[in-house]
Nucleic acid binder design. Structure first.
Lengths: 148, 148
DNA sequence: AGCTAACAGTTGAATTTGTAACTAACAAGG
DNA sequence: CCTTGTTAGTTACAAATTCAACTGTTAGCT
């Protein structure tokens, strides 16, 4: 008699959301220690930094939409980054609801540093796969990430 | 002149840890609303439930090791599951430091329900890819998840 | 102009998580 | 026995996250 506690047909480790989470946690760990150790940043903070570094000046709302981060999280990350002089905040003259964010010189330096670390780290992660495999992985992950 | 704010060679959306995180968040969202809505469970709680449901009776430490969850998180999940009569806790007679956890009838029912939901959800997620693609994705994710 | 609704962003209280110190139980050497 | 060290699990406190309500600003309608 089969007990369902011995069910082998659906392993937890095959459940895609679980597997994705494990892979995300594991792969993010090492990078986290770097941005945390060097700049005392939280995850949302380096994300905001990268958004500004890669795409240039934009509002908090835009960052939140692109990265699917809740606005309160963005707001607090922006406050911390601004208080540490990594970013500037500038009210839009025509519509004062908008606040445009941009990197300071220090912010740009931090971004460049972390960007290089990220690039190398990414290269090391993907080096264990073939170029085709990596490309397919990225496509599939983007698809799973959906509208984000 | 190229500003690095216009750097197209390393998109944020190509950084594997970021991409993995986005995919994990997006894919976990829908399942979360189910276990949260039906049973008021948190992520760690359904994971503990699934570990016991799939692999059978085991200790909190074992669960933590298998799923790479910190022991305090497991401890609190176990307390909540036990208080809601989803699991039983039984001290090991020979070594009273160990506490063996197992599902109650209600726990097993919840597990079976969520298990079925998970299976269907997983099937829907993977249905957008070919069988070969899905298999490769799982292999790669397991590799990225590392020892976990 | 004046009213209402929508929007960008912030704040405060309640939940949840992380860190470190803790209890209780056992093991091994003296 | 009686230290000393280790292990399983808990708890206390600080940090981070979530949710809801909030401010200040603009747009649209009348």
């Amino acid at each position: 008699m089969m007990r369902d506690t011995c069910d082998e047909t659906f392993e937890l480790a095959d459940f895609l959301p679980y597997l994705l989470n494990q892979a995300a946690e594991a792969s993010g760990q090492e990078f986290q220690t770097i941005y945390k150790g060097r700049y005392g940043m939280l995850r949302t903070e380096w994300r905001v930094l990268f958004h500004l570094g890669i795409y240039g000046k934009m509002t908090a709302k835009e960052i939140g939409e692109r990265a699917a981060i809740h606005k309160t999280k963005v707001s607090r990350a922006v406050q911390k980054l601004a208080s540490r002089r990594f970013i500037t905040r500038e009210r839009h003259a025509a519509d004062r609801r908008f606040e445009y964010l941009d990197l300071t010189t220090a912010g740009r330096a931090a971004y460049r540093d972390l960007h290089e670390v990220a690039r190398q780290y990414d290269a090391r992660l993907t080096s264990q796969f073939s170029a085709e495999e990596t490309a397919l992985l990225r496509v599939m992950l983007k698809r799973l990430a959906g509208g984000r």
